[in-house]
Design a protein around this nucleic acid. Structure first.
Lengths: 337, 337
DNA sequence: CTGAAAGCGCTAACAG
DNA sequence: CTGTTAGCGCTTTCAG
């Protein structure tokens, strides 16, 4: 590998001068020298070793991303983040927690060890004390679609209250009274709490009872969604509509309904969360509360990069994004009994 | 940030000794010293700066991944690679070319600049001379689902000939004679060439003419697939079956068919490539040539890591993975005319 | 068995 | 305007 020294020799100048052109420090440099060095760089096809640069500058120009799992939801987020990083000269290191808090913690530690300049975190374990620690050392991070409540940090989240409320209003207006909600365990996860709260509130608004048999908390493991849905459908008083609050969960809910031989929306209405391009091709096209995921990705990296640049702390930004109900064919009027 | 020096001081030993325990070099070390150092590390919560380590060791323990675009297909690949990396102490830097050869090249250069230890490449521009250059400097890389033909390198690819042939046999056996194939531009991309060749060969096998109006080469831009499919369906002699060779393309083909008001499979049969979990929930459930994508990801990282470890060159491995035809509801017997 | 010292490739004062 | 110098934090001979 060719080094800055080689370039210096070739151009007949000192390392510092080469370093200066590498960093576009042309202020006090003769045009002649600049050209000479540029030429040498060109000829040697020299690329500075960014590891050495990082060591010296104490920044890696790498952003770490922690995602909960590899859903289509996350794919879009990654895309958004990626684009924004590119514009600003950052690279992205992605790691997937596969829904495991231990994995998440390990990944974060690893990325910190790699000295990433900042972290975008889609956490599944908001209570982790790791975050308190990171905050205490002022490590730049922004939370996406999740947020520890004991600490104040930048975050970009979805207004799930509005999203859920709209979905519920829509279902109630279609005449549904038995509306089930499917959720992954609430833990301390704000987005899940919001969804559940908005669900309950909607019911109360309409003076419907809150039936705990209709609130399904599902362990975040493959297959759990199918089982729970099947049980739900076989229960004595099954719902006429289901609100599924997560894209992976929705996949399983739909599979279960199909397995049971029920037809959507004739037999049961379904609304999902988090739209993605294949939803309109489903059988039937799925009505969803759509989240502008790409935008969330972009916003989170913008926030993070800004934070990295001006070192000094400012008060945490809470960037909220609005979901939108997309009407398709998976809902219809409730049958009158 | 605490450094190795802090630990040394705290334990009352030299930096070298600390470094030794960091690298598990316990061979010639007294148990007492080992414990002392371990304790100091623990108490200071010391994590070695991997940037400094990288600079010294000339390896970053980072693998770079170049993906063509962010399809569900790639999501699975990333997952597979990720898992394998984790097991071997590597981190992953992902970058997305967004189907742009220029972007791809820039990303590769960036990753090289970041001194990744190796590259897994899903290229959209196999002819790029960058690959020849990388090969000439013996940069560890493995190609996934794509491969430059002028250079010999490790790769993991799908046996698309078999996949395509099976799909064609199946369609022909259902009585289809007018079978269209949808492809992104062949360029020098082996997987695409294979698909097209196998398609033609299958037709010849059955003594069907190769009708060039049925071979659709589609520019890799959003919307092109829809337009082409619409044109195809409106042509004087439309196909009774479509073989769509790429997951993104399939999305557009299905949209176009729906837009045209045609029913699958009654009006037209469709087989897609690259299965993913939502396919079975489509309207109708999509018959696909399924690729073991996760496995491809795993294999490619295994190959790469092996290559990184034993520096010396060995002859290139070509790891081939078998696709499988998954029968669902998007195909049926051709109508007799 | 342990420590001193050199150096990975680059940057950034500081001189000149 | 340009070069010299001293590290960044770690690893690795080489002595002792």
């Amino acid at each position: 590998m060719t080094t800055i020294e080689d370039v210096a020799k070739k151009a007949g100048v000192s390392k510092s001068s080469v370093s200066r052109v590498l960093n576009q420090n042309y202020k006090h440099m003769s045009e002649e020298m600049k050209q000479k060095i540029l030429k040498a760089i060109e000829e040697l096809d020299f690329r500075p070793n960014s590891v050495a640069q990082s060591l010296k500058k104490k920044e890696t120009k790498i952003i770490g991303l922690i995602i909960a799992d590899m859903s289509p939801f996350c794919t879009e987020i990654i895309k958004g983040i990626q684009e924004e990083c590119l514009k600003n000269g950052y690279s992205l290191m992605v790691s997937n927690s596969s829904s495991s808090p231990e994995q998440e913690e390990e990944n974060i530690k690893m990325l910190i060890g790699k000295r990433v300049d900042g972290l975008i975190i889609n956490t599944i374990n908001p209570r982790s004390e790791l975050f308190t620690y990171l905050q205490s050392i002022k490590f730049p991070m922004v939370f996406i679609n999740s947020s520890p409540q004991n600490i104040q940090e930048d975050m970009v989240i979805v207004d799930n209250t509005t999203g859920t409320t709209e979905a519920m209003d829509y279902l109630v207006n279609l005449g549904h009274k038995q509306i089930a909600i499917m959720l992954y365990p609430i833990e301390n996860i704000l987005v899940r709490q919001e969804k559940l709260e908005a669900y309950k509130k909607a019911l109360m608004n309409y003076h419907f009872p809150v039936d705990h048999n209709l609130i399904n908390i599902i362990k975040q493991e493959k297959g759990q969604g199918i089982q729970t849905t099947l049980r739900l459908l076989e229960s004595p008083n099954p719902p006429t509509a289901i609100l599924s609050t997560n894209i992976n969960l929705t996949l399983e809910v739909l599979k279960a309904i199909r397995e049971k031989g029920l037809k959507i929306p004739k037999d049961i209405s379904v609304i999902g969360f988090d739209d993605f391009e294949w939803n309109e091709l489903l059988d039937p096209a799925l009505t969803t509360v759509s989240t502008p995921v790409l935008e969330m990705g972009e916003r989170s990296s913008k926030l993070l990069i800004k934070k990295i640049k001006r070192k000094k702390q400012t008060k945490p930004v809470k960037s909220e994004v609005l979901p939108k109900l997309i009407f398709r064919q998976s809902t219809c009027k409730a049958k009158l009994e």
